[in-house]
Computed example of a mutant assay.
Amino acid sequence: MDTQFQPSLDPAEVYERYLSRNIADPWTRVLLDLVSPKSGDHVLDLACGTGSVARQVAPLVGEDGRVVAVDINPGMLKVGSKQQMPDGATIIWDSGDATQLGLSNNAFDIVFCQQGFQFFPDQPSAVLEMRRVLRPGGKAVVSVWQSLKQQPLYHVLFSSISKHLEVPAADLDIAFSLGTEETLHKLFSTQFKDVQVAAITLPVRIPEPAKFVQFSILGAATSIPSFANMDAASRLALIEKVTSDTLTAVQGFVEGGVLVFDMSTHIVVLS
C-alpha cells in the first residue's frame, strides 16, 4: 500500500496537476483544431475548470481577442488563475452558473465547453444560455465522455467505488452520463440548427500510476458531491480500499512507469 496518500490535498490543485495537464490539455488541442480560432475572436471557456481551453486559445486570438473563463467552482478559478499565463489575450476569470450566465447577448464568436455539460443540473437552460451569448454565425464546441462502458479503466475504478460506497454506479459516473450520440442530438437540436457529433478516441498518458485512484477520487471531488462531501478520513479509507481492489487492473495499463490507456469522447460542433 502506498503510504504517501494525502487525501487532504486541495482537489482543484490535484485536478490541475494530474488530470488537466494529462487529460484535458491533449483534448483541448483537438477542440481547437476543429474550429481554428483566429486573431480577434471573442471566446468563452464555459465550465473552464482550471482553464485548459482558455490558456491554449489565448495566443490564437491574440491581444485583439477576448477570452472569458467561467466556472461555478471558485477553487478551480483560483488555481487556474495562478498558472503561468500565455501570450495573447488576457484571460478574464469569472465565477458563474452555466444556466444563468451574467454575460451579454451575442458576445462570443466561439463557445467551448470541455467536459462540463454533463455536470449541469439544468442542461436545457445551459444550451439556451450558450445559444444566447453566441454571435450569429458563431460556433459552439462541446466535448463529453462516451459512456462508462467505453472507458475500460474507469469502468473498473467506478465499479469498485460503487461497491464500497454501496451506491449505484449511476450515482457516481456523472462524468460519463451524456454518453450517447442520440442524447446529444436531442439536447442541442432544441437551439442549434446544425449539430455535428464525432466520436474520437485518444491515448492518455498519466504519470504516478500508483496514485491513479487517489488523484482520480480527489479530482472528482471538484464536481461530484459523493466525493466532495467526504471527510478526510472517509476519503482515505475509500482510496485505500479501491486501490487494493484495482491494483492488478491498473498495473495492466502501465508501460514504462506511465499509465497508458484510451479514452473515448463525443465532440459536438454547433452552429
Rank of each mutant, 00 (worst) to 15 (best):
D109G: 14
S20Q: 11
V30D: 14
S147Y: 06
S223Q: 08
L259C: 06
F215T: 04
V197N: 13
V195Y: 00
N73M: 04
V57R: 11
Q84R: 08
V111A: 09
I224S: 15
L60S: 12
V250M: 12
Q251V: 02
R29W: 07
G75T: 01
E166K: 08
V61C: 13
F192A: 08
L34N: 11
R235L: 09
P225N: 07
V142A: 07
V30L: 15
T90C: 13
P11G: 13
E13F: 01
H185N: 12
L153M: 01
A228M: 02
S36Q: 14
L178R: 06
V250W: 05
F5T: 03
S177C: 06
S234F: 00
A237P: 02
E166Q: 11
I224H: 12
A54E: 09
L259I: 01
L187N: 10
L153S: 09
D94A: 12
S8Y: 08
A47V: 13
S159R: 12
S95H: 05
V268C: 08
Q151G: 00
R17F: 08
A169E: 15
T222Q: 01
S162R: 04
D10P: 02
V127C: 15
G116N: 04
P136C: 07
G116H: 02
V260R: 15
A98C: 10
V260L: 15
N229P: 04
R205K: 11
P124E: 08
V141F: 12
V204T: 15
P7C: 11
L202I: 12
L202P: 02
I110Y: 11
S160T: 02
V133H: 11
A89K: 04
S160A: 15
M1V: 14
